[in-house]
C-alpha cells in the first residue's frame, strides 16, 4: 500500500516543488530506485547484482526478484546515478566477472534531494496529524 501511494503521489509532489521552490531540475527517483541506490551505497565496494538483491531482501524483508533489481540497476546507470565497472575474473560462477556498481555524484545528489523533500514534507505536517501517524 505504501509503495503504490508514493508512486501516485510523487509526480504531484515534485510538481508542486518545481513550481515554488528553488530547485529547478530534479530527476525522478522512484521508491524502488531509491531503495536500490541506498543499498548500493550501503554495500560500498561490494555492490553487484547478487549482493544488492540479497541485501534488499534482508534489510526490507521484501522478496525482490533478481531481474527487477538488475533492470533497476541498469536504468539507474543509464540515468547517470550509478556507474559500474567489471571486476576481475572469479573462481566461482563459471569464472564470470561481476559488475560492481557505485553511486555517482549525481546519484548522491538525487538521494539527498529525495531525503530533503521527504523531510520537508514531514516537517510541514500539522502536529496533530503527525501524532496520528507516529502514535
Amino acid at each position: 500500500m505504501r509503495r503504490s501511494l508514493f508512486i501516485y503521489l510523487a509526480p504531484h509532489l515534485f510538481g508542486i516543488i518545481g513550481e515554488n521552490a528553488n530547485v529547478m531540475k530534479r530527476a525522478l527517483l522512484g521508491e524502488f530506485e531509491e531503495v536500490v541506490m541506498l543499498t548500493v551505497a550501503i554495500l560500498d565496494e561490494e555492490a553487484y547484482g547478487v549482493t544488492v538483491t540479497q541485501e534488499i531482501e534482508r534489510k526490507t524483508g521484501r522478496s525482490v526478484g533478481f531481474s527487477t533489481v538488475h533492470t533497476t540497476l541498469q536504468r539507474l546507470e543509464e540515468k547517470g546515478f550509478l556507474s559500474s565497472q567489471m571486476g576481475g575474473a572469479t573462481a566461482e560462477r563459471g569464472g564470470r566477472r561481476k559488475r560492481f556498481f557505485t553511486v555517482t555524484a549525481a546519484g548522491r545528489k538525487a538521494l539527498r534531494d529525495v531525503k530533503q523533500v521527504r523531510e520537508e514534507l514531514w516537517r510541514s505536517l500539522p502536529p496533530q496529524t503527525l501524532q496520528l501517524i507516529t502514535g
Binding site: 547484482g49 547478487v50 538488475h70 541498469q74 560462477r93 564470470r96
Partner: peptide, 16 residues
C-alpha cells in the same frame, strides 16, 4: 551487453 554478469549473478543466486 550485460550477459556475462547476468549469467554469473544468476549462477551465484542459484547456488544460494
Amino acid at each position: 551487453d550485460t550477459l556475462e554478469e547476468v549469467q554469473g549473478d544468476l549462477l551465484e543466486l542459484y547456488d544460494s
